[in-house]
Design a protein around this nucleic acid. Structure first.
Length: 830
RNA sequence: GCGAGAGUGGCGAAACUGGCAAACGCACUAGACUUAGGAUCUAGCCCGCUAACGCGGUUGGGGGUUCGAGUCCCCCCUCUCGCACCA
């Protein structure tokens, strides 16, 4: 081989990928040591990976390779979130079977991932569209059904026309579908729900223990769950004699209640309209509001008097009952006690309909005057005009009034959540069939466990209009009722694809098992995931569902842990030209082209060097070239040093071991010290801080140091240079595994680069005999002195004061105060 | 409006517990090697003044604590993200 042979990434990378594939490099079973479960969010097999995947999976792979070197047994699996709408769309547009389309995409993407050198345990690969996978999901569904955790109800649900299906609340972002920002409207449908609200408190509490999660994600989940404590108060209706419960968090303002407002969907609404003698008008209002979409409803405050009155149980006062557009049936009881003086919405409503405003809370500025108020006073304060409760603070007032109501049987303390149950029915084809049979006699009947899986028929003709073909497939739909034997029909909805991703990480622990979903011992060994890496867009979707599912499976007896993900890293987006890289923006960089032009190692290096993992990454073609240039620089250095042989023929000649500190020249000792410091920095930056950008910077400094060292005239102490080069390769290996393997195999004597353990640094090598100290006068740097590390303080001060610029700054005065920071600086104040 | 996070050179960024602001990289400038350079190597590169040694200023703005603040405390401004009639 020629010394001047330049770095040919394609050739090198192909060779090593082949070797790793033969060795089964990523298999968790190959490793010994303490188990570590490292996982990146699995992708949807859309056909091609994008730069976001490259970044996500590089962050993971660097960590995996580092952990293995540190002696861990690492579980680092990969799979496919394979059900979902794009497969159906492709099928309709191009006439391909979704199953085939998905399978082909998977194999293309698997190849792309391998081409990037990611070290996965492919023996555990799962695809969620495989009946051997989703059969367990059907089993869990049935078990949840048994325990009342899955149930069916008719409900107003979010409908996305573009997707042709229902969406869960979490999948609606400000009235738009999370996938394509198409509009979402309300529709009344019979749906299957999972009772995530049964775990609301536990999911909320659990967040407190998740120290390894970004605060941002925990806050988002807290807000989403939206727990609020309050009182449910019964208001008897004069005209109907019925009781109307309302929910409030501000029982302290109860004496200020001047009306009650209900959602138009409230079950008592029609009855109140009738009893109030204003039926026609009220019904017309109900009609006009219910026709509107949620977004349109939010325009202003609108309502109508029902003609009925409610009795405030605390003071017997009779107040009018209104229907109002802004009251949500989905929250609390769908009815609200209105206190215009202390709630801005009620204030606006009262102003519009001429309802009385009665202030009952005073702030620090004293009592409010109803006639001059411009807005509601919503803060806590002190109660007045509130009978026996006057004078109490808001907090005490809430407690006292709740207690008084409870004693009268007119109220009870309750907790409300914003979180609602998870609607999982999807009117789509490409998903997990819901294992339910609808029987004319027995109503809803579970498919017997022995009959699982209910296999999704493949090779079907998809409908032009985009609807699910399942209801039309007689072979699939038609079935005998397992209970009474009558002719019955299968449920033709499929499950939300977020259900599959809510437990795939547990399946990975024993993905090969046939007869059971999980092997309890293997799950106990691996779960929870020690480090999870993925995008923040799943903060309240996948990540909340997974926390819920893990608890359900725990309660079903499948595992012990409650929290699925011990630590979470949310990596930033890949940005180009100021916008997120996306097809619609037309600013995508194709990973394949990148790899073809520069190689996988360059792609990997750039994706972790340009920014810390959790920050957005600004794409830069120049930056990619820079990463490539650095790798070439390492390539040349290693070959030049490793091929000390004058004939220009590379031979294995480098010893990788530390030559020790004995008899080194000053520059050699300096280089050796730099190597150890780099080992320290890289280990800390990868292992403890996950700041790969600074880890790479440290390695670059080492390489610069080695080049500098080589430039010296005398070229003794080559053992130190050998050590420096070998350690460069060892430390760089997690980032650029192909090139480092290749170079190591060519020039280093001994075991492979990934066969030697991660090096420990020698702390004594970092201790310098002489150190530079800064001398400050009045906070300004006025000199630097080289001193022995153990110089006595008096001597140090004397030396410092003698520095010409220091002496000039002191101008003959003696310091009023002197501070010495050992090893760093001397600070003098005059 | 509520909540969270962030403001540092021309750019991406660094600064571990308060201790030399700008490591590392990109871009740029000069030089070397060269038939050539969009390869490589060397040097320079926050701003102002200076021929130079230096001097002064600088981490969104203002104040404070401290010998010393990008870092800690208070006030303000801007940007990004999340939630948004949740009673």
């Amino acid at each position: 081989m020629d010394l001047s042979e330049s770095y040919n990434a394609a050739e090198v990378e192909q060779r090593w990928q082949q070797i790793w594939a033969e060795r089964g490099g990523g298999n968790a079973d190959c490793d010994q040591g303490e188990p570590f479960y490292l996982l990146e969010m699995f992708p949807y097999p859309s056909g091609r990976i994008h730069m976001g995947h490259v970044r996500n999976y590089t962050i993971g792979d660097v960590y995996a390779r580092f952990l293995r070197a540190k002696g861990h047994r690492v579980l680092h699996p990969m799979g496919w979130d394979a059900f979902g709408l794009p497969a159906e769309t492709a099928a309709i547009q191009r006439g391909i079977d979704p199953a085939r389309w998905t399978r082909e995409n998977i194999s293309a993407m698997r190849q792309q991932l391998s081409r990037l050198g990611f070290s996965y345990d492919w023996s555990r690969e799962v695809a969620t569209c495989d009946p051997d996978y989703y059969r367990w999901e059907q089993l869990f569904f049935l078990q949840m059904l048994d325990r009342g955790l899955a149930y069916r109800k008719k409900a107003r649900v979010n409908w996305c026309d573009a997707c042709g299906t229902v969406l869960a609340n979490e999948q609606v972002e400000g009235e738009e579908c999370w996938r394509g920002h198409s509009p979402v409207r309300q529709k009344e449908l019979d749906q299957w729900f999972l009772r995530i609200t049964a775990y609301a408190d536990e999911l909320l509490e659990g967040l407190n223990g998740l120290d390894g999660w970004p605060e941002k994600v925990r806050t988002m989940q807290r807000n989403w769950i939206g727990r609020s404590e309050g009182v449910e108060i019964e208001f008897p209706i004069v005209e109907t004699g019925k009781s109307l419960p309302v929910f409030t968090t501000r029982a302290d303002t109860l004496f200020g209640c001047t009306f009650v407002s209900l959602a138009v969907e409230h079950p008592q609404a029609a009855e109140l309209a009738r009893a109030g003698g204003n039926e026609e008008e009220v019904c017309a209002f109900i009609d006009s509001i219910s026709r509107l979409e949620t977004a349109e409803r939010a325009q202003g405050k609108e309502g109508i008097f029902t003609g009925c009155h409610a009795i405030n149980p605390i003071n017997g006062r009779s107040v009018p009952v209104y229907l109002a557009n802004f009251v949500l049936m989905e929250y609390g009881t769908g009815a609200v006690m209105a206190v215009p003086a202390h709630d801005q919405r009620d204030f606006e409503f009262a102003a519009r309909y001429g309802i009385e405003v009665i202030p009952v809370i005073e702030g620090e500025d004293g009592c409010l005057d109803a006639s001059s108020m411009l807005e509601a006073f919503e803060e806590d304060g002190r109660l007045h005009d509130s009978g026996e409760f006057s004078g109490l603070s808001s907090a005490d007032g809430r407690k006292a009034i709740a207690k008084a109501l409870a004693e009268k049987g007119s109220g009870k303390e309750v907790v409300n959540y914003r979180l609602r149950d998870w609607g999982i029915s999807r009117q789509r084809y490409w998903g997990t069939p819901i294992p339910i049979i609808h029987c004319p006699n027995c109503d809803v009947v579970a498919v017997p466990e022995a009959d699982l899986p209910v296999v999704l028929p493949t090779g079907v003709e998809l409908l032009e209009g985009g609807g699910s073909p399942l209801p039309e497939l007689e072979d699939f739909v038609s079935i005998r009722c397992p209970q009474c034997g009558a002719q019955a029909r299968r449920d033709t909805d499929t499950m939300d694809t977020f259900v599959e991703s809510s437990w795939y990480f547990i399946r990975f622990a024993s993905a090969e098992r046939d007869g059971i979903p999980f092997d309890r011992d293997e799950v106990a060994r691996w779960m929870p995931v020690d480090q999870y890496i993925g995008g923040v867009e799943h903060a309240v979707l996948h990540l909340l569902y997974s926390r819920f599912f893990t608890r359900v499976l725990r309660d079903l007896g499948w595992l012990e842990v409650s929290e699925p993900f011990e630590r979470l890293l949310t990596q930033g987006m890949v940005i180009k030209d100021g916008a997120k890289m996306s097809k619609s923006k037309g600013n995508v960089v194709d990973p394949d082209e990148l790899v073809a032009a520069y190689g996988a190692d360059t792609a990997r290096l750039f994706s972790v060097f340009a920014a810390p993992p959790e920050k957005d990454l600004d794409w830069s073609d120049r930056g990619v070239e820079g990463a490539h240039r650095f790798l070439s620089r390492v390539w040349r250095l290693a070959l030049a040093v490793g091929a000390a042989d004058a004939g220009g023929v590379v031979r294995r000649s480098l010893a990788w071991a530390d030559p020790g500190c004995e008899g080194l020249s000053k520059p050699a000792a300096g280089l050796r010290s730099l190597v150890h410091d780099t080992i320290r920095r890289v280990g800390r930056d990868i292992g403890e801080r996950m700041r790969y950008n600074t880890a790479v910077a440290a390695i670059m400094e080492l390489v610069n140091g080695a080049y500098e060292y080589r430039q010296r005239d005398d070229s003794s102490d080559d053992a130190v240079l050998d050590f420096a080069v070998a350690m460069t390769l060892r430390l760089l290996f997690p980032f650029a595994p192909h090139m480092c393997s290749e170079l190591w195999s060519r020039v280093v004597v001994g075991p492979g680069v990934d066969e030697i353990p991660w090096p420990d640094y020698d702390a004594s090598a970092l201790v310098k005999e002489t150190i530079e100290m800064v001398v400050q006068v009045n906070g300004k740097v006025r000199g630097r002195i080289q001193v022995a590390a153990d110089i006595p303080e008096t001597e140090l001060l004397e030396l410092a004061a003698k520095q010409p610029r220091v002496a000039a700054a002191l101008a003959g005065r003696s310091p009023r105060k002197t501070v010495v920071v050992p090893g760093r600086l001397v600070s003098m104040v005059v």
